[in-house]
C-alpha cells in the first residue's frame, strides 16, 4: 500500500514536470498573481504540490521567453510584490498547449475505453 503511494507520487511528479508550463500559463490566464499567491493556490489542487524552488526559476524562464510579464507593485503598507501576467505571446502559447493537452487526454481516454480483445480501431 505504501509502495503504491510512492509509485503514484513518482507518476504525479513526472506528469507535473511535463505539464508545468501549461499549469503556470493556465493559472495566470486572465489574472495577475505574485509568486507566493500562485504557489498557495496551486497547492490547493491534489496533484499540484510544487515547491518554491521549482516555481520561481520557471517563472523567470517564462518571463525571459516573453510568455509572461512581471512587474513590482506595492499596495498600501505591504511589501512590494512581483506580479505576473500573460503576454499576448503567452496567450497564444497557452492556446496551443491547451489543444495538445486535450488531444492527449482524448487519446488516453480512447485507449482506456477500448480494451481488447476487439481491435482498437474498427476496420
Amino acid at each position: 500500500m505504501i509502495k503504491d503511494t510512492i509509485k503514484h507520487e513518482k507518476w504525479d511528479s513526472q506528469l507535473r514536470k511535463g505539464s508545468l508550463e501549461l499549469v503556470v500559463l493556465a493559472s495566470l490566464n486572465g489574472r495577475q498573481a505574485y509568486g507566493l499567491e500562485l504557489l498557495k493556490s496551486l497547492q490547493q489542487l491534489p496533484t499540484m504540490q510544487l515547491s518554491e524552488g521549482t516555481l520561481y526559476p520557471l517563472l523567470d524562464r517564462l518571463k525571459r521567453e516573453g510568455l509572461i510579464a512581471a512587474e513590482w507593485y506595492q499596495e498600501g503598507d505591504s511589501r512590494p510584490r512581483k506580479y505576473f501576467q500573460l503576454t499576448d505571446e503567452g496567450q497564444i502559447k497557452l492556446a496551443a498547449l491547451t489543444d495538445r493537452w486535450r488531444q492527449s487526454v482524448a487519446d488516453i481516454e480512447y485507449l482506456l475505453d477500448h480494451p481488447g480483445p476487439d481491435p482498437l480501431f474498427e476496420e
Partner: peptide
Amino acid sequence: EVIKEIESHILDA
C-alpha cells in the same frame, strides 16, 4: 532581481 524576488517571498511567508 532573483535575490529581491526570493527575499520578498520569504518575508511574506
